[in-house]
Design a protein around this nucleic acid. Structure first.
Lengths: 192, 192
DNA sequence: TCATATTCTAAGCGTACGCTTAGAATAAAA
DNA sequence: TTTTATTCTAAGCGTACGCTTAGAATATGA
């Protein structure tokens, strides 16, 4: 009986993610969203309830995005220190790429909204739980592969590398490529 | 001839800084500002021109604030690695203190506004230029004091520790004290 | 004491915000 | 073909935004 939508939910969500990424939550108006998503306000509210819920969905979409475009090699079953090294170094040098100038959507959101909204704070925490467990797995593999010492405290190292990644997200806005590279190189060298 | 102000510019600016620190730029309305600063909108605009200019002044006030409350030991003429160590470790453990839950105003601003406003972006860059030169001086002293190897590349190390500090500012919102401590401990251990 | 430059109060300007709604359009089921 | 559930368009709701202004209040210099 029903009439069909003329747009794809997942596709317009990705557009929403991008404009939130560029402008932040408060900095993105519903008028900007309807222009960027290519649908009008009625459809936005019909499909995503309200602006905040759309933003939370955009945060989840962002996780899919970075998994696909950044973390994939690190999520391979046998990913080890070589993959971590490659990931960090390329994150540092690709700062001139289109993605990195915007920083990280999650870090930006943590800065802008932080703990003020519990639903969004939860989303942020879940994101970092995911990253942390990804790093842990990689470090476990690295020990198996003899890339790092057997007695490495991988829990502590996971905190360290997570902190470094968060640092990169800020530094990508304030440092040049060579400084970023120095930062990452030293972070990587400490473990060997 | 003129009538005098009933408030102190510097004092109300500090109040403004605090509410911007808590709520961010967009998240702080002029109505909130007049309530917190204890003066009405006319006085705000008379003394600070407009909201953005007030915010820029608040950013500068923030620098004074952290110099006084955080960086002072690091700015002593003979400050070395011991001071850096102490600073980072206390930044990691005092996360339950009143200041650290809010993160760093400059990092929050970089996330929220970033490069969108050139005037604010300039202020952010000047802040980090200042921090970087402070770290550089400390590392120079550390070599003199034989706290770190003579052949240490202090420029690279400055980028590293600046990155770590930016990481802490984000991590202070997403990690617990023990994880933060692990992060900082490893960052410090790499240089020795 | 009085004139004057400045500050204060409080009201309100125009605009943009997030969100809703009435009614026309449309695609599937009967 | 008709019915019906849903989507679409476009207009506009109430509210909060950043900012301004007219006029009363007030502290100084003459």
């Amino acid at each position: 009986m029903p009439r069909n939508k003329t747009y794809d939910n997942d596709l317009v969500l990705e557009k929403a993610m991008n404009i939130f990424w560029i402008n932040g939550y408060e900095g993105t108006s519903v008028r900007m969203l309807e222009k960027e998503m290519g649908i009008n306000q009625f459809s936005i509210y019909a499909s995503f309830k309200n602006k905040k819920n759309l933003f939370i969905n955009a945060l989840r979409k962002y996780r899919e995005h970075v998994i696909k475009n950044r973390f994939q090699p690190l999520l391979q079953e046998e990913a080890g220190f070589a993959q971590l090294e490659n990931f960090l170094l390329s994150a540092a040098t690709s700062k001139n790429g289109k993605d990195e100038k915007k920083g990280c959507l999650v870090v930006n959101t943590a800065g802008e909204i932080g703990e003020h909204d519990p639903d969004i704070a939860l989303e942020i925490n879940q994101y970092y739980d995911f990253i942390r467990s990804m790093i842990l797995k990689v470090l476990q593999n690295a020990i198996k592969k003899d890339e790092i010492p057997t007695n490495t405290d991988i829990e502590k190292q996971a905190s360290f590398f997570l902190g470094v990644m968060q640092g990169i997200s800020v530094a990508s806005k304030t440092m040049n490529s060579s400084q970023l590279n120095d930062f990452v190189s030293i972070a990587l060298a400490q473990i060997e």
